[in-house]
Design a protein around this nucleic acid. Structure first.
Length: 281
DNA sequence: CAAACTCCCTGTTAGC
DNA sequence: TGCTAACAGGGAGTTT
């Protein structure tokens, strides 16, 4: 599932492919993907817009567009579980999971493919309408660990829950939450406000290191499959009942706020619990 | 106000 | 082998 690094790779690909291109026609094949405005107005409002640039905010892909009069419009997409973009020639065979087709005036098409149909697209005049509540960007140069520590100590919920909250730190999903907690040696159920400053700083350092490295390894993947199939291999996520790569203890799987969570009971010490948790199988 | 639950979807996998 | 049912998971919305 795409998280910050996968979205960043998609953004770089789209920026390369789309900058300067004009939309000539739009075909929506699964209406629920269009979150704003009303689906019936979406194609006509997009027609004629030119891609200025593409950037990322959290897990959102932000296409900055200009209309014929030079006014700003924002085409913002969220890949959710299984969404991915591809820019292909018109002649490319239509896949049954390609739900939004954006025709470009140069004979190519931007296609949004999403098997689970959870992805969302927004066309708005004010980007804050979609992005307004997002939290800190963990890879920004101005990300400050001391500041972030002060921020997370406001929450008594488990640190993993805090990491997953997009309004606190943007872009972290289940994979990189488990990975950074494992790397920092912090139990996922530790209440955020019980973390000491060194632990929190270690967590942020590991988070940034892991996110950056994931972007690099996905980036070196062959160019036309930038979103998935990267080289990043998780050390904790998805490795329940396998040996910890640091201490060789058996990794454990629990539920934290309804999300599958894998951690090492030896390296990530159990300290405090704010909620009951139950074992999975 | 926060935590928990429900829903949206379908490919994959476990179970029979 | 072939079928069905459970499951995963981000985020919005609803309920407790």
């Amino acid at each position: 599932m795409p998280e910050l690094p996968e979205v960043e790779c998609a953004v770089r690909y789209l920026r390369e492919q789309l900058t300067g291109s004009r939309i000539s026609k739009v075909n929506v094949r699964w209406k629920r993907i269009i979150a704003a405005p009303a689906v019936d107005r979406f194609p006509s409002l997009l027609r004629g817009l030119v891609f200025r640039t593409v950037s990322r905010r959290g897990k959102y892909i932000v296409c900055e567009m200009t209309d014929r009069l030079g006014a700003d419009r924002f085409l913002i997409s969220h890949l959710r579980m299984s969404g991915r973009f591809a820019v292909v020639p018109n002649s490319s065979r239509l896949d049954k999971h390609e739900h939004v087709i954006i025709h470009l005036s140069d004979g190519r098409q931007l296609r949004f493919r999403d098997t689970r149909k959870f992805g969302r697209m927004y066309l708005v005049e004010d980007r804050e309408q979609v992005l307004g509540k997002l939290g800190l960007e963990p890879l920004e140069r101005d990300f400050n660990a001391a500041e972030a520590y002060t921020l997370i100590t406001q929450y008594k919920s488990p640190i993993k829950v805090v990491l997953l909250r997009q309004d606190i730190i943007a872009g972290v999903g289940n994979i990189y939450a488990d990975e950074s907690l494992w790397a920092a040696g912090i139990h996922p159920l530790t209440p955020a406000n019980r973390l000491d400053e060194p632990s929190a700083k270690r967590l942020f350092r590991e988070l940034r290191r892991i996110l950056s490295r994931a972007i690099k390894t996905k980036g070196t993947d062959n160019g036309d499959n930038v979103i998935h199939g990267g080289m990043y291999s998780p050390k904790a996520y998805g490795r329940a009942n396998q040996n910890c790569l640091r201490c060789s203890a058996l990794l454990k799987r629990i539920l934290v706020a309804q999300r599958g969570t894998t951690y090492c009971p030896r390296c990530q010490k159990k300290s405090y619990f704010t909620q009951s948790n139950r074992k999975l199988s």
